[in-house]
Design a protein around this nucleic acid. Structure first.
Lengths: 142, 142
DNA sequence: TTAAGTGCAAAATCTTTGCAAATGT
DNA sequence: ACATTTGCAAAGATTTTGCACTTAA
């Protein structure tokens, strides 16, 4: 997870430091797992309009602050981009997403080695996205 | 790709052999790539109601005839289950999905070796879903 | 002050549900 | 003939857009 000052990130991105943006970014960065859109609505729906949440998330994504993950059920989830390589419209988040079947959380496994895939002739891989389905650390330990 | 008689498949699944089901299953099985919901609507929307298409697809999925893939944009796509291991509510489709950034097609790479992933302690993998993003065979050759 | 951000209303999609009519066996 | 399947209407859910009001710089 990237270490940073929320307010600096917003400033660097050229986004105004509004109350809601600071709270949302704090929340996403404190979260160990990728946060779903519905979760964010539940948490911030009282202080911000649903539309505002959508707009903030797409602004964060555009600026390379968070990346969107479509989980195995098709739900959008958001997680911090984990390095300084992500720039506007240019994401590099080639890590594995672990979808837990017990708690439903999606975790970005930044440190898991990503295997090289041998593709058939004439297939050129640019990037990829790997989702593993199983039981996460927390649920295994419980 | 599985070889079969469309009508037998429907029969075995206990589904009535209606005109639309036969056409849809023929189409999906003839397709080299996973077909998106919007595509299916464009093709069959004149002979069948949108709702019917939804219902047929979920029936096919429930019976283990096709599997649903959520592509990287969150769009549902459908492809034939590739072996006889898929049964009702019990899919085994552990292959790689190749998403082409040129033509947008999603191809099930049944023959690509799926790498073993070393997960962190206490993470138990049950199954997984791997999407590779790049340029497919057809678009590379063009 | 003024450009960017937000809220509200409304539209555009996407997906599901209920029920009457049509179809397959 | 009878259970299944389909079409239509409508409800729900999700996401986007437009415009006036508000806020940060």
């Amino acid at each position: 997870m990237r270490k940073f000052k929320t307010e600096e990130v917003l400033e660097d991105a050229g986004l105004k430091k509004t109350v809601i943006r600071i709270k949302m970014l704090d929340f996403i960065s404190a979260s160990k797992t990728a946060v779903s859109q519905p979760d964010l609505e539940k948490i911030f729906g009282k202080i911000a309009d649903r539309v505002t949440i959508y707009r903030i998330l797409s602004a964060f994504e555009e600026k390379g602050i968070v990346h969107k993950i479509i989980d195995l059920h098709g739900t959008s989830r958001f997680a911090l981009c984990n390095d300084k390589h992500c720039k506007e419209h240019d994401h590099h988040d080639e890590h594995i997403h672990f979808n837990c079947t017990e708690c439903g959380n999606v975790t970005c496994l930044d440190n898991v080695h990503v295997p090289v895939i041998k593709l058939p002739k004439n297939y050129k891989a640019a990037t990829f996205n790997m989702s593993v389905l199983g039981v996460c650390n927390d649920c295994t330990v419980k």
